[in-house]
Design a protein around this nucleic acid. Sequence first.
DNA 1: CATGAATGAGGATTCATTCAT
DNA 2: CATGAATGAATCCTCATTCAT
Lengths: 209, 209, 209, 209
Amino acid sequence: MAVAGKRKLRRPEKADANRKGLFQAAAYVVGKHGYANASIGRITERCGLAQGTFYLYFDSRQDLFDQLLPAVGEEMIAYVSKAVHGSRDYFDVERRGLSAFFDYLTKNSGFFRILYESDSVSPEATRTHYENLARKYLKVLERARAEHQIRALTNVERDVLIYVLMGARDYLYRNLVLRGGADETRRNEIVEAFVSILRNGIGPEQTTP
Amino acid sequence: MAVAGKRKLRRPEKADANRKGLFQAAAYVVGKHGYANASIGRITERCGLAQGTFYLYFDSRQDLFDQLLPAVGEEMIAYVSKAVHGSRDYFDVERRGLSAFFDYLTKNSGFFRILYESDSVSPEATRTHYENLARKYLKVLERARAEHQIRALTNVERDVLIYVLMGARDYLYRNLVLRGGADETRRNEIVEAFVSILRNGIGPEQTTP
Amino acid sequence: MAVAGKRKLRRPEKADANRKGLFQAAAYVVGKHGYANASIGRITERCGLAQGTFYLYFDSRQDLFDQLLPAVGEEMIAYVSKAVHGSRDYFDVERRGLSAFFDYLTKNSGFFRILYESDSVSPEATRTHYENLARKYLKVLERARAEHQIRALTNVERDVLIYVLMGARDYLYRNLVLRGGADETRRNEIVEAFVSILRNGIGPEQTTP
Amino acid sequence: MAVAGKRKLRRPEKADANRKGLFQAAAYVVGKHGYANASIGRITERCGLAQGTFYLYFDSRQDLFDQLLPAVGEEMIAYVSKAVHGSRDYFDVERRGLSAFFDYLTKNSGFFRILYESDSVSPEATRTHYENLARKYLKVLERARAEHQIRALTNVERDVLIYVLMGARDYLYRNLVLRGGADETRRNEIVEAFVSILRNGIGPEQTTP
DNA sequence: CATGAATGAGGATTCATTCAT
DNA sequence: CATGAATGAATCCTCATTCAT
C-alpha cells in the first residue's frame, strides 16, 4: 500500500527495527515510570541505542509521546478484537471483550499509565485513541442492532452507551480487578454481573398485579 | 474572639489562609499544567507566597500531591451531594448527580487532570479518593434498594454497578460533554439517555408471543 | 569578677543558661554533623529555644562559630590539666596528659570535628585555641627544664617540641586509638611508647667499642 | 602513535583533560573555600566547563570529594619522595622530607584544608590517604633499622613513631611555618631542631658521676 | 526577652537537545 | 546512519536572617 517514495530507503529493516525498539522501550518506560520520568536516556538505554540516535527517529520527546498511545492502543484493540471473534451474540461479545481486556492489562500492566497520563501529555494522542476505540464499539453495536440482539436505541443513547461501556472496562479493571486483586473466579463473576446489568438495567422488578 | 476588623488576620487565621491558598493554587496549576509541571515556584507565585514558605505547610512537593486529590475530591463530592439533595427517587438521584457532575467539571476544568495523573503521582491519594466516592455510591444504592426503587442485586452486581456508574460519569463527561462541546440541551439528552439505559439495560425488546 | 555594667541585667541566670545551652547544643551538633550542617534550626531545636532566640545571644552563625572552639577547647585543657596534677616529673606529666587526652576524646567524640573544621570555618578561633594550648605546654616545659628533668633546649627546639607534642596527641588519638580501636591495655602501651621515644629519641645505639 | 598537531585533542584525550581539569579546579576551590563552599558551579566555572558536564565525570559531588584527597595526597607524597631520593641516611631523609613538605605546602596552600575537612566530608578518603602515608613511613623506617641507622623499636614504638612523625610535619607546618611566617633560615632551624629532637629525645643530660 | 512565620538566595542534580566525530 | 560528550536551563529544597506579635 502507498506509493513508494523515491527517496533512498536502503537498510529499511534496521531502521524499522530501531523505530520499533524505541516504541517498545518507551511503552515499557512510560508504563513503569510515567511520562514525566521517561527520559530519552532511559528509553534509549533500554533498547540499546545512543541518546542521539533517538532524534533520527523522532523530532522530539513530545513527538514520541504524540505517537505512543495510538500505537499501544491499537495493540490492545487488536488483542480484544481477536478474542471476541466468533462470539454467539452481542452479549457474548461484551462478555469476552471485557474478559480479554482484563487479560491484556494483566499482561501489559503499563498500558493504563500510558493511557491515563497521555491525556495531559498529548491530548491529541488521547483523542485519537478514544476515537479508534469508539469506532470499534460503534460497529459492534450497529451489527448487534441489525441482528435484533439489542433493543432500539436513539442516537444519543447509542453514544452514551459507547462511553459507558468504555468507562466500565476501565473502572472495573482498575478498581475491582487490579486494586481488588481478583482471581479467575472473581473475574468471571464480575464479567457476568456486568453483562447482566448491561442487558437488564437495574430498574425495579415488575410487581405482578 | 473577634471584633475582627477585616484588616489584619490573626496568626492562626493567616496560617489557615496560606494553607488553603496553597491548595487552591496547586489545584489550579496541576489542573492546568499537570503534576510534572507543577513546580513549587509556580504554585507559590500564584498565591503570592515565597517559595520557602511552601515548606512551612508541606513537607515536600510529594506531600502536597498526596493531599491534593482527596481535598479537591471531597469538594466535588460535596458539590454533587448537595445537588442531589431532595431527589424524588433513585433514578432522579442519578439524573441530578450526573448533571451536577457535569456542572462541577465545567466550572473546575482542572479536576480531571488532577484525578488522572494522581494515579501515578500518588497512588495512595487516588485510592483514598475512589474509596470516598465508592462509599457514597454504596450508601445511595442501599437506600434505593431498601425503598424498592431498584431491583435486587447480588453483591458482585452491586460492586460492579458502583464502578460502572463512576466510570460512566467520567467517560461521558470527558468524551461527550468536554470533547463533544455539549450545550445545555445536549447535556440533558445525555443525562436522560444514561438514566434510561441504567434503568432498562439494552436487552432486546420482549417480543410478545 | 569584672565591674558590673550599669545596664539592666535582670534575669541574668536565665540568660546565662540560654547562652550556655546554645553552646552545648552547638558543640553537640557541630561535633556530630559538622559546621556545614550545623544549622541554627538544629542547634536551637536541640536546646529547646526558638530560632529567633539565637540572635539574642549571637550576632550571627559565624559569631557562634568564632567562639565555639575556644570554649570547648578550654574544657579539654582543663580536663587534661586536672589529670596531670600531682605528677612525679615531666615525663609523668606527658604520660598522664596523653592518657587523659585519650580519655577526654573518648567521652567527647565531637571535639575533633570541631577542632578540625574550625580551621576553615574560623581561623581566628583556631588560632586562639592553639595559642591557649601552646601557652600551657610552654609553662610545663619551662618548669621541667628548671628542675633539670629534661635536657637544655634551644628556643627553636622548644618551639618545635611544643608542636610535636601537640601533633602527637592528635595523630596518635585519631589513628591509633580511634581508628585502631585501642583498648585500655593497648592505650597504655601507646602512651609508654610515646614517652620512651620522647625521652630517648630514636638515634642508633651507642656501639660500645 | 599520533601525528598530533597541538590543535585538537582526540576524544579520549579530551576526556582525560576534563577529568584532570575538574580535579585541579576542585583542589583549588576546596583548598580556598572549603568543601562546604565548593559548589559544582564554582568548580566547573574554574575549569571552563558547564555544570552538567561535571556529571559526566563524577556521579555526584560526594563522589568527587571521595576521590579528591587520595588524588592530591598522592601528589604530595610523590613530591616528598622525590625530594628525599639520594639521602645520606635516615635522619637525612627526615630532614629533607620535612623540608620538602614545607615546600610543597607553600606551593599548594590548599592542601591542608583538603586534608582537614576531608575527615568529616569523606572519612573513607581520609583513611585511604593516611594509609598511603603510613605505608610510606613504614618502608622508610624498616630500611633505616635494617641499616642500623636507628635504634631497635618495639612494634608499638614503631607505630607510635609513624604517627608522631606525621603529626609533627602537620603541626610544625601549620603553626610555625604558616602561622609563624617562617623564612628560609627559620625553616632550616626548625627542620634541624626537629631532627635533633627526633634523634636524641629530650631526656636529661647524663650527669657524669 | 522570646517566638516562629516568612523570606529569597543558593546549590545539587536531571535532562532534552545539539553537534563534532 | 549512529554515537555520546557537552550544554545550560529548570527545579526542589535548605537555611540564615528578619520582624511582627
